[in-house]
């Protein structure tokens, strides 16, 4: 089993904090598993819609939101395992080409949530190349602090769709859980974005 991810320099909790803090009107959809806990730790709030399931659904959820709200910046932050399960959605995103959508895969090369089994990215699969091949032009891989700093503006502001793989350390972290009540998570997000009359 490839152990390289255990020494990747980027810590996912710091990356989530940097992304969430970069733009106060950023709308975030997270995948299930660690990205959910990362963004909850960075600041549990109504402009985050954290998935607890629906594996493979983070990118299309973000796409539906981005198409509905073209004037708002939308970030999908998800895991490599979650991305692999719904990989075709990147082609759907490429065809729609929403300018306001960015996708960041926190790639720890592991199914973190289920016991740190290696995913396909630990050996052969390259998600940024895949995104490129499926038609997303603005793609790349971020491996350290300097690259993250240099790429932050593209993730947060550049014309989308933007795709970045962010290689993050495979590390055990404490759980930081948001509400698991899906109705509540939906309503708090819609009230924040659309106003109380949306409820």
């Amino acid at each position: 089993m490839s152990k390289r991810a255990e020494s990747f320099p980027l810590h996912r909790r710091e990356v989530a904090k940097t992304l969430l803090g970069a733009r106060e009107d950023l709308l975030v959809v997270t995948g299930l598993g660690s990205t959910n806990w990362d963004f909850t730790a960075a600041g549990d709030c109504a402009r985050i819609f954290p998935l607890w399931g629906a594996m493979g659904g983070a990118v299309p959820t973000g796409l539906g939101l981005a198409l509905a709200q073209p004037s708002k910046r939308v970030l999908v932050a998800t895991g490599d395992g979650e991305m692999l399960m719904g990989i075709g959605a990147l082609a759907t995103v490429a065809v729609q080409a929403p300018k306001n959508l960015a996708i960041c895969v926190f790639d720890n090369e592991r199914y973190g949530e289920t016991g740190m089994q290696t995913t396909h990215t630990a050996s052969v699969a390259d998600l940024a190349l895949t995104a490129q091949g499926l038609g997303i032009r603005n793609t790349g891989t971020i491996t350290d602090e300097n690259e993250l700093k240099a790429e932050l503006d593209a993730i947060i502001n550049a014309d989308g769709p933007v795709f970045r793989t962010i290689k993050v350390r495979a590390e055990p972290l404490e759980f930081v859980l948001p509400s698991k009540d899906g109705v509540h998570l939906k309503n708090r997000f819609r009230a924040e974005l659309l106003g109380p009359e949306a409820l």
Binding site: V59, L67, A68, F189, R190, L193
Partner: peptide, 19 residues
Amino acid sequence: LTTEEEGIALSAGAWLGGE
């Protein structure tokens, strides 16, 4: 869509955005 399950999540995302 590339597979129907995308459409389920897309519908949810659209509704989050009021559409």
